[in-house]
């Protein structure tokens, strides 16, 4: 039986001023799958992820989460939908006035309304899982890039979200740390196997270990959707990307 659709994009378009960054994107993310979003830099991958989370409003088409159009939801409805989300930002987006402990505890304090002792225990456990048990009381400015990424990952997944979105989780990290990050994503998905997970990355080799299907964007358009086994029917540019011969960006969004 096919898993239910968590997120559906229909003819999604997004523009900034006169430049269309996304055009005619049709896409489904199913419960339980890990979808990889790949493509050259600056071709709309992060914008797509923000549209999926309702952080950007589409200029064309729509994004449906469990059948609800995000653009038609009021603030309370949008907040209710977003309670399912965990979002790892490309540039960490840690709250710089909070310690690591408070950053990770923040979603639980704001949404889950759990007793303090339970929040503390869950935060400590999640930080231990990402290898940062020693960094509880540090501030984000005291952390390295890889540590910040792991704190961002712990914050996004501490509530075991039903929809997990990762925006370039290995950007700017060394190969060893990148591997650790992808292992953590796999572990988070194993913890909640019914979660719909979307990972944006250029790191095709590491994505192979965790992704069930891929979407490739070029100039804001979908040029490939499917599993790696379907690459035989894919355009040359897609095969080249998977083969590690990413061609130079050709402009566009």
């Amino acid at each position: 039986m096919t898993a239910p659709v968590a997120i559906r994009c229909e003819d999604l378009g997004k523009r900034f001023d006169d430049a269309w960054v996304l055009r005619g994107v049709d896409l489904e993310v199913r419960r339980g799958e890990v979808l990889g979003v790949i493509g050259p830099g600056g071709h709309g991958k992060s914008v797509l992820l923000k549209c999926l989370a309702g952080l950007l409003t589409p200029d064309a088409g729509r994004v449906l989460v469990d059948g609800e159009d995000l653009a038609r939801l009021g603030p309370l409805g949008l907040a209710r939908v977003r309670e399912q989300y965990g979002y790892v930002f490309q540039n960490y987006a840690l709250f710089d006035f909070m310690s690591v402990r408070d950053n990770v505890a923040f979603p639980l304090r704001q949404q889950a309304h759990l007793p303090d002792a339970e929040i503390d225990a869950r935060v400590a456990a999640r930080l231990a899982e990402v290898g940062l048990a020693h960094a509880l009381d540090l501030l984000p400015r005291e952390l390295s890039g890889g540590m910040k990424k792991r704190v961002g990952l712990a914050r996004a997944t501490v509530g075991d979200p039903a929809i997990a979105l990762y925006d370039d989780p290995s950007a700017g990290l060394d190969p060893v740390t990148s591997s650790k990050i992808f292992q953590l994503i796999a572990r988070m998905h194993a913890r909640r196997p019914d979660a719909a997970t979307v990972v944006v990355s250029h790191d095709v080799d590491r994505m192979r270990a965790i992704c069930d299907r891929y979407v490739m964007l070029e100039r804001g358009r979908v040029v490939f959707v499917g599993a790696e086994s379907a690459l035989g029917d894919a355009p040359e540019v897609v095969a080249a990307f998977f083969g590690g011969a990413e061609r130079a960006p050709t402009g566009g969004g």
Binding site: R82, A93, P107
Partner: peptide, 14 residues
């Protein structure tokens, strides 16, 4: 500019 406001919104916080 550091996306902390977006992070709040992504966590369903106004």
């Amino acid at each position: 500019v550091t996306e902390q406001v977006d992070a709040l919104r992504a966590l369903a916080i106004d």
